[in-house]
Nucleic acid binder design. Sequence first.
DNA 1: TCCATTGATACGAAAATCATATCAATCAAG
DNA 2: CTTGATTGATATGATTTTCGTATCAATGGA
Lengths: 293, 293
Amino acid sequence: MEIHHLRYFIAVAEELSFRGAAERLHISQPPLSVQIAQLERELGTRLLERSAGKTTRLTAAGAVFLDEARALLDGLDRSIERTRRTGRGEVGTISVGLTSSMAYGVVPLLLRDFRRAHPGVTLQLLEMTTAQQEKALLARTLDLAFCYPPLENPGFKTRNVGEEGMVLAIPDSHPLAGTRPVRVGELQGETILTFPRHLSPGLFDRMLAAFSMAGLTLRIAEEATQLQTIIALVCAGLGVAVVPASMAKLAREGVEYRSILDPMPVVETLLVWRDDAPSPLAQKLIQSVSKTA
Amino acid sequence: MEIHHLRYFIAVAEELSFRGAAERLHISQPPLSVQIAQLERELGTRLLERSAGKTTRLTAAGAVFLDEARALLDGLDRSIERTRRTGRGEVGTISVGLTSSMAYGVVPLLLRDFRRAHPGVTLQLLEMTTAQQEKALLARTLDLAFCYPPLENPGFKTRNVGEEGMVLAIPDSHPLAGTRPVRVGELQGETILTFPRHLSPGLFDRMLAAFSMAGLTLRIAEEATQLQTIIALVCAGLGVAVVPASMAKLAREGVEYRSILDPMPVVETLLVWRDDAPSPLAQKLIQSVSKTA
DNA sequence: TCCATTGATACGAAAATCATATCAATCAAG
DNA sequence: CTTGATTGATATGATTTTCGTATCAATGGA
């Protein structure tokens, strides 16, 4: 059985006439009779009562199969449309990774714009470290990733979607509290908290270098897998911290943010994807982000 | 698009290999590639990522279409099975007419047997007079009819499914009440109620003849479109009535039934159907009734 | 009785699918 | 780095299927 059998049968069942149906189908009557006969033979039952001269009628099985055939063709149309929409990237799900520290930066804005432009698309956001995201991209668990450089794997395409400076986070009870920008030298003797290196080796090393030049050392808060934890430690008076500027949006009681006068590393945010055949959805998000950023 | 496109695509999507799928389909690989390419062209989107040497993978659209194609083929199988069952008369609906007076005779027994043997069949029972049933058969509103002879239209096939004698229905306060059979002569002076002629002309005329021979007249209860109404009138003391023996099963408080010694008309019940192409369900019911009766 | 119309059948023509042969690209092994 | 094996794509002739023309028997209406 093929789909044209369904179409042919529906035409005959609706016209209740082989000649009329043949005309509607733009074919001649004999092959139509043959095709219907094939269909009846395969189904093992007569679908139409025909007697020359008198009106053709549906059998009980024919009435059932007419309903079924219509439903099947409708289902086929819907299936085709759904597939086409998916192919055009109008619907579907896309997995996007981001680090927990990006929750307050430019990434939410970029994603919000994409969501508005593509309401049919489900964004699946997964908080992961840069290293985890790289592995997930390779395993195809992620379609896209928002990472911090440097990337370990060279086989990725990237786009810079924003960069931000570092600011100082201090308790509001601290002598340096106030609106004044701060120099690194003023931190002499302070406990300067920072995150474990594996969370962002590139940023970590550049921070380390910047402070070493000023003769300062950093204290690594091993348990701080999220920058918010660092802020919490600052709030508790365990020290000060240097964090990306967007963290200032996390207005936390008892913590103030001060800009730093000395040269500090700049945190770049990269959108990363595999260089082989990104899905249409991924392409759309890349395009959306490129336009916005 | 044809159904074999769906089958071919499912095979490739499941094997994730054109050659493997071709082997499974018992065709060679080149035409399979061509068919998939046709499918992709018609859908306007790529379904499979293929790169020589590396593993073939589904695109997002391909994953969607795989689900859809499986569902469509499943639906097709179910449709075929449903149609075949209808063709074999295993499922469906059959419209059967019967007169209201048959509700206590042999007909319910016959239908009960059929119901047991064919649980998938819905019996649509319609209470109609014999004349109404004949019209409904011609209009194809009914598939089968349980009628009383004679039939007006000669173009029917019939089968006698039972005959029964007539009995006397009298109030239990009546002088004739008791267990004794009754002679027609004993009804001299009684009001003998009967149904309007149009409900069953054949039976009416034979009844009329039988009573005329004994010098008795009948009083027609015009409002009695159902035999039960006659019984109700008897119960109310408006007279006595001669009714089919099966009505005795309608054990009504205040009414007794007496057999009649004189020759009385015999009520035949006919199963009636059009002589042109009865549906498989109708054939099954005819067969069931013939075996039981 | 004749004529028009219905669907079925027969047969050659057109179209679609298929199999064989072959290619470029890629990967694994030496 | 080279070789051999495997992947899917392409080209071409063969086979199968479907289609159209011609024709038939059966039925209903004029």
